[in-house]
Simulated assay, not measured.
Amino acid sequence: MIHDPHKHHEFVLLFELKNADLATPDGTQATASVRYGLITEDALKGLIGRQVYKVHGLPTLIRWPGRARKHLLAPLSRGAEGGLLLEELRRYFYDLRLFGLAAPTPLLGAQGTPGEAGPRVQIPAALRLSPARTVDPLLPLDGQPGSYGLYRLHGSYNPEQGQANGVTASDLEVLWQTLAHLFEPSPEMPPLQMGVCGLWVFSHDGLGGASVETLLGQVAPTRRVEAPRSLQDYHLCSPQPGPLAADPRVVLTCWA
């Protein structure tokens, strides 16, 4: 079910970061009050792209240096020839199939070098991500220069655009495996500790008039204590895996 590129898939990913640096850009320690942690959509796409290449060996455009990427995309400004290249790029690069592409095409200069920006080339995204935001405000860890945050990320896969982009069942299988292990603890990044707390995927043929927000809202972590320091400080409420009691057309698969 979750590997079917002809289905809609909405998901919630929860992950935690411990000992994250709370220093402000000028180097002073943030002692302020209410502040939420935020990881942007672009940063998350970069993490996914690098993990897909590292673990599964699939090529991703996001790993290419900026200059090399410009050379690669420059021929896209050449009409029909550019259209054929676009199809080949989408077939070759995993992240183009999932996340699409929206960028001005560099025109070729005098000696085949990229010049000024040309027409904007766009591949609509089959997979859309929200920024990841902490469920609660970040708080210093007992006065030390670090913090704990439980982050929540939403995502949505559109099967119509997925088919147009050539997304396969294998692509989706790689996606779920990558997300479920995206924030594995890394010995290369002490003292920062990262870990996925759970992934919930809701698969369906269409929600009709129902709201995606209401569907994803069924995964609800609520804190047990005033200042959470770990996942154990949260009570996690979510539906049972399988067809939902409230709407059996929706099937839930989860790693938690």
Rank of each mutant, 00 (worst) to 15 (best):
R152Q: 10
L175P: 01
L175Y: 02
A256D: 11
T168W: 10
Y148I: 01
I62P: 03
G83W: 11
H204P: 01
L101Y: 09
Y92N: 10
V212H: 07
T40I: 01
A23F: 14
E16N: 05
T40S: 15
R152K: 11
D205A: 12
D42P: 04
P239K: 03
L141Y: 03
P137C: 03
V225G: 03
A169Q: 13
P131E: 05
L215K: 04
L47N: 11
L129F: 14
F93H: 05
L244G: 08
A180Q: 14
P104W: 08
H8I: 09
H71N: 07
A126G: 07
P243M: 05
L76E: 01
G146T: 09
Y53L: 14
P137R: 00
D136L: 13
L98T: 04
S170Y: 14
W176V: 08
P119W: 06
L72P: 00
T105C: 13
R91K: 15
P185Q: 05
S238A: 15
L96S: 01
M1N: 13
Q232K: 10
Y36N: 09
L96M: 08
R128T: 13
S170M: 12
S130L: 03
E81S: 13
F202S: 02
L252N: 01
R133H: 06
P119H: 09
A256E: 09
L244A: 09
M1F: 12
G162R: 05
D136H: 08
V55G: 08
R91A: 15
P124R: 07
E116Y: 01
A245R: 15
P243W: 06
A125C: 04
